[in-house]
């Protein structure tokens, strides 16, 4: 019999990920490794690893990786790409990393149209530190630092960072996707490939926001977490293409 899903060459072999059961990180890692393989850029890829749950993504992604300080991924990516424009650069970041501590770096690298791809994992909590409030935490959502639920009066509103940067002329492609089901996963991969292709074509900044389940910190089963993305999280953060400044095919 023939194996229908051979191991992606840009995913390290024989490693068990440290992610919790049902976590979305593993899926997004796999999609990235498949996409760089299909677009034939894996050998010249550098992935910037964040502080957060994906801090040791380098143990799983079989591409060159560099660590970044919390929130500074897009600044590191800017340095990489400015020094070696021929390389393919991904900045992999969580919501706290990209949209709280790294907001300035995110905004300005996007506005300059730096030619790399940011992958934003939005799970509406700080996962690695144990489930504190994130900039994307929903109103009334309970976290370990919003024990009675987030209130707009105290904490402001969920931050729509991808919608913000999508308005910038330097952004070639921005899309929000989810990974809570087979069809969603396929759409997420297509979005990643669109963003990656925009980088390959030198069109500027691209960003893919992924609504990603964090069952443990949401205190849900993996199935409930999927449903919560459909029923609640994606109502605040609707899926879809937020910016597409790629030249239209004639």
């Amino acid at each position: 019999m023939k194996l229908k899903n051979p191991w992606p060459i840009y995913f390290k072999k024989d490693v068990e990920t440290h992610y919790c059961p049902g976590c979305g990180h593993g899926i997004v890692h796999r999609l990235i490794s498949e996409a760089v393989e299909e677009l034939d850029v894996g050998k010249r890829t550098i992935c910037v690893n964040p502080a957060g749950c994906a801090v040791i993504a380098y143990n799983y992604l079989n591409v060159d990786c560099i660590e970044s300080a919390h929130g500074r991924g897009t600044a590191v990516a800017t340095g990489l790409k400015r020094a070696r424009p021929d390389l393919f650069v991904i900045s992999y970041q969580g919501d706290g990393d990209l949209a709280a501590i790294g907001t300035a770096e995110t905004i300005h690298s996007a506005n300059r149209g730096e030619c790399f791809t940011a992958v934003l994992i939005n799970n509406a909590v700080y996962g690695m530190t144990g489930g504190q409030m994130a900039p994307t935490t929903l109103l009334s959502q309970k976290t370990t630092t919003t024990p009675t639920g987030r209130t707009s009066g105290n904490d402001g509103y969920p931050l729509h960072i991808t919608d913000v940067v999508a308005t910038f002329k330097g952004v070639a492609y921005a899309e929000r996707v989810a990974v809570n089901g087979p069809a969603a996963v396929q759409r997420a991969k297509k979005a990643l490939k669109n963003a990656f292709q925009a980088q390959i074509d030198g069109l500027g900044y691209s960003i893919i926001e992924v609504l990603s389940p964090c069952p443990v910190n949401w205190k849900m089963s993996p199935i409930e977490a999927w449903k919560w993305i459909d029923d609640v999280l994606s109502k605040e953060f609707p899926l879809g293409v937020l910016a597409d400044r790629r030249p239209k095919a004639v």
């Binding site: 600044a75 300035a104 770096e105």
Partner: peptide, 26 residues
């Protein structure tokens, strides 16, 4: 070479990290 005015000193030093990582004098 490349001159880039960064959005902050914090961003600048992290851009330095990126350029240095690929071997540039920065």
């Amino acid at each position: 070479g490349v001159f880039l005015q960064s959005e902050s000193e914090t961003a600048a030093i992290n851009m330095v990290e990126g350029a240095s990582a690929v071997g540039a004098r920065v």
